[in-house]
Design a protein around this nucleic acid. Structure first.
Length: 361
DNA sequence: TGGACGTAATACCTTACCTCA
DNA sequence: CTTGAGGTAAGGTATTACGTC
């Protein structure tokens, strides 16, 4: 993406605006954008939304992911699997451990996420036996309705979302969905009747606050999920992996929309600033032209050194420079020629700046 | 080695539903 | 009670990347 704005008669900046992604070799998928403006405008701005979505943290190889995801989708589309996992008609949600080798550690993780983070893996000291314990802990927490201590959150959402059925993506709410969330969606229970009547209505589930909050937290960690993470999250929240996947898709879309709005606002301000700068430069140019005209009408014009308008290539300010002649061993050289010989040009408008000093060095 | 093909992940667009003013 | 706007879960499709033959 490039933005070039012409400044009328004045030469356009040598360097257009640029969007610098965090990785030049990849598509900027992490919503982190740094915008740099030309030096003439005197400002720059960086935009950063959320942590970098480091794909390196997606630990598992693609092949393994695909294998896992195949399981995921198979499970997605398998009604029997889902009715079993979510308890279907049963009041007690049954937790199927679909990834027996996945070290799921929802509460033990320092981040509170069901997948092991690098810090957990490095400093957690989690050996294989500990992983087994963690899996057992999750199973115990999610399968015991009376375990209201550390698992109250999971049990709440378990009750709430256990009404999902795998019947071709159609959802319905069962009478078990009581409480605040159940009350909120009591009008959705007619879908069962619709199913009976063969009417293919699409009832919409709203994720509970706890589910949304947890997904939000995990989104801060990763904007994308590998299959392991997706499964772990789905298991933790008692949702289908497809739901987790969709939530992340929509969340990314929302993030992008917001980022677009921010970018739009920033570009608008850029445009305003550059317009103002353009106006100022035009005015400056007119003044200098008037000065030059006045110079030519001066009776002592011939005795004064020639004046030309030049522009500093670095800061692009207009300057009136004089051309003087010097005689050196019967050889006449102009200042412009001296520059061609390697002498720096003098820009009277420019303060001693780094780009000028560097030109002389 | 390059092309055809299949698969999976993701982005994007859209729809349907829900909530609220 | 109705209605329209806004939010959001989910469906459908296009695109892209990767692996296999």
């Amino acid at each position: 993406m490039e933005l070039c704005l012409s400044l009328g008669d004045v030469q356009a900046p040598a360097e257009p605006f640029g969007l610098v992604s965090s990785s030049s070799s990849e598509k900027p998928r992490d919503d982190r954008v740094i915008m740099a403006a030309s030096k003439t405008t005197g400002f720059c701005m960086s935009l950063s939304i959320g942590p970098s979505c480091d794909s390196s943290t997606s630990t598992s190889p693609r092949e393994a992911d695909q294998q896992l995801d195949r399981n995921d989708h198979q499970n997605d589309d398998d009604p029997s699997r889902f009715s079993a996992a979510c308890g279907s008609k049963s009041d007690v949600p049954v937790q199927l451990d679909l990834l027996p080798h996945t070290p799921v550690a929802p509460r033990s993780s320092s981040h509170g996420f069901p997948w092991p983070t690098p810090s957990d893996q490095n400093g957690g000291g989690g050996g294989s036996s500990e992983n087994v314990n963690r899996v057992e802990e999750v199973a115990a927490v999610s399968s015991s309705p009376t375990n209201s201590g550390a698992s109250s959150f999971q049990m709440d959402i378990g009750l709430y979302s256990s009404n999902y059925r795998g019947s071709g993506g159609k959802r319905s709410h069962s009478p078990e969905a009581e409480g605040d969330e159940g009350e909120r969606q009591s009008n959705s229970r007619a879908s069962d009747e619709d199913d009976i009547n063969g009417i293919n209505t699409r009832k919409k589930l709203r994720l509970s606050k706890e589910q949304s909050a947890f997904l939000e937290e995990s989104f801060k960690e990763h904007h994308t999920l590998n299959p392991k993470q997706k499964l772990a999250l789905a298991k933790q929240l008692n949702l289908r992996p497809r739901q987790v996947e969709v939530w992340f898709q929509n969340r990314r879309a929302r993030t992008k929309l917001k980022q677009t709005e921010v970018d739009c606002e920033f570009l608008k301000r850029c445009c305003e600033t550059l317009t103002e700068e353009n106006r100022r430069l035009h005015k400056e140019l007119q003044e200098l032209r008037a000065l030059k005209t006045h110079h030519h009408s001066n009776p002592f014009y011939m005795q004064s050194p020639a004046t030309t308008l030049t522009m500093c290539p670095s800061c692009e300010r207009i300057a009136a420079t004089t051309t003087t002649t010097t005689t050196n061993n019967n050889k006449t050289t102009t200042k412009a020629q001296a520059e061609a010989d390697g002498f720096p040009r003098f820009y009277p408008f420019c303060q001693p700046q780094s780009h000028h000093s560097s030109a002389t060095s």
